[in-house]
Simulated assay, not measured.
Amino acid sequence: MDMQQDARQPKTEEELFAFLDGLGIKHTTKNHQPVFTVAESVALRDEIPGGHTKNLFLKDKKDNYFLLTVEENATVDLKTIHGVIGAASRVSFGKPEKLMEYLGVIPGSVTAFGAINDTGLNVKVIIDADLMAYDIINAHPLRNDATTSIGSKDLLRFIEATGHEPLVLKVTA
């Protein structure tokens, strides 16, 4: 088998959980119907406490990529966010091909946990400061028919363990 090809296989949910376990990070996961939007996921609120995330995969004109993880109801101003996150220009949404290549997920499954697949460190991971006010943060475990709950500080530890430096910035209105 070609090792280069193997290196690009996205990690599975099981590999993600094993990675978290290896870091001694407590996590729980609840399976549910696939959800593609924040609106669809609202029905799960009573069952899963904590801060729920909305994730934006963005790029600037110099092909710098950013993953913004914010609280689900937060508003992000795409016209001005580039100044906050250090982008070279205004940002737009990254293409699904790059999302799969870098984070190993499809649209609708974007998650901070995707950092585990960005072994080339192509994506800058940014967590909104308001989201960090929650003790528990909920995100998709690389697929959108489950929600994984993790401590907010543990989420930062996870991101650091993938080689990324998580930037906690105030990115929401």
Rank of each mutant, 00 (worst) to 15 (best):
residue 54 K to E: 00
residue 106 I to R: 11
residue 86 G to W: 10
residue 74 A to V: 01
residue 154 D to E: 14
residue 87 A to F: 04
residue 154 D to I: 09
residue 80 T to S: 15
residue 142 L to R: 06
residue 37 T to D: 07
residue 104 G to R: 04
residue 39 A to W: 05
residue 111 T to G: 03
residue 82 H to Y: 15
residue 106 I to K: 12
residue 125 V to Q: 12
residue 67 L to H: 04
residue 57 F to K: 00
residue 115 A to D: 11
residue 63 D to H: 15
residue 136 I to M: 15
residue 136 I to N: 07
residue 36 F to M: 11
residue 45 R to L: 11
residue 66 F to A: 06
residue 72 E to W: 10
residue 44 L to W: 01
residue 133 A to H: 13
residue 32 H to G: 09
residue 112 A to D: 07
residue 72 E to D: 14
residue 97 E to M: 10
residue 38 V to H: 02
residue 138 N to W: 02
residue 55 N to W: 05
residue 113 F to H: 02
residue 95 K to I: 11
residue 51 G to M: 08
residue 52 H to Y: 02
residue 100 M to G: 06
residue 83 G to H: 13
residue 63 D to Y: 12
residue 58 L to Q: 09
residue 116 I to Q: 04
residue 91 V to L: 10
residue 118 D to A: 07
residue 135 D to K: 13
residue 32 H to A: 07
residue 103 L to H: 07
residue 52 H to K: 02
residue 128 D to F: 05
residue 125 V to W: 10
residue 114 G to W: 00
residue 126 I to K: 04
residue 34 P to H: 03
residue 126 I to V: 14
residue 79 K to W: 08
residue 133 A to N: 14
residue 40 E to Q: 15
residue 29 T to D: 06
residue 33 Q to P: 05
residue 48 I to C: 05
residue 70 V to I: 15
residue 140 H to A: 02
residue 120 G to S: 14
residue 52 H to N: 03
residue 83 G to R: 15
residue 67 L to S: 10
residue 146 A to Q: 03
residue 58 L to E: 04
residue 134 Y to E: 13
residue 143 R to E: 11
residue 76 V to I: 13
residue 51 G to E: 09
residue 60 D to W: 09
residue 135 D to T: 12
residue 135 D to I: 06
residue 89 S to T: 13
residue 110 V to S: 04
residue 62 K to D: 15
residue 96 P to K: 08
residue 152 S to N: 14
residue 61 K to S: 13
residue 90 R to V: 12
residue 121 L to W: 10
residue 139 A to I: 00
residue 85 I to C: 06
residue 144 N to M: 03
residue 154 D to C: 06
residue 78 L to R: 02
residue 89 S to V: 01
residue 49 P to W: 10
residue 107 P to S: 05
residue 61 K to N: 14
residue 80 T to E: 14
residue 53 T to V: 10
residue 100 M to D: 12
residue 134 Y to W: 14
residue 36 F to V: 05
residue 94 G to W: 00
residue 94 G to Y: 01
residue 45 R to M: 12
residue 82 H to V: 02
residue 90 R to M: 11
residue 148 T to G: 02
residue 45 R to D: 13
residue 83 G to F: 09
residue 93 F to K: 02
residue 61 K to D: 15
residue 149 S to P: 01
residue 139 A to W: 00
residue 109 S to T: 08
residue 125 V to E: 11
residue 154 D to L: 06
residue 148 T to D: 01
residue 128 D to T: 01
residue 37 T to F: 03
residue 151 G to H: 12
residue 150 I to L: 12
residue 54 K to S: 03
residue 123 V to F: 05
residue 142 L to Y: 01
residue 36 F to N: 14
residue 44 L to P: 00
residue 53 T to I: 08
residue 99 L to C: 08
residue 145 D to M: 00
residue 75 T to Y: 13
residue 101 E to N: 10
residue 129 A to M: 08
residue 107 P to F: 00
residue 124 K to N: 11
residue 53 T to L: 05
residue 77 D to C: 05
residue 86 G to C: 08
residue 147 T to K: 00
residue 153 K to G: 01
residue 126 I to F: 01
residue 35 V to P: 03
residue 116 I to S: 05
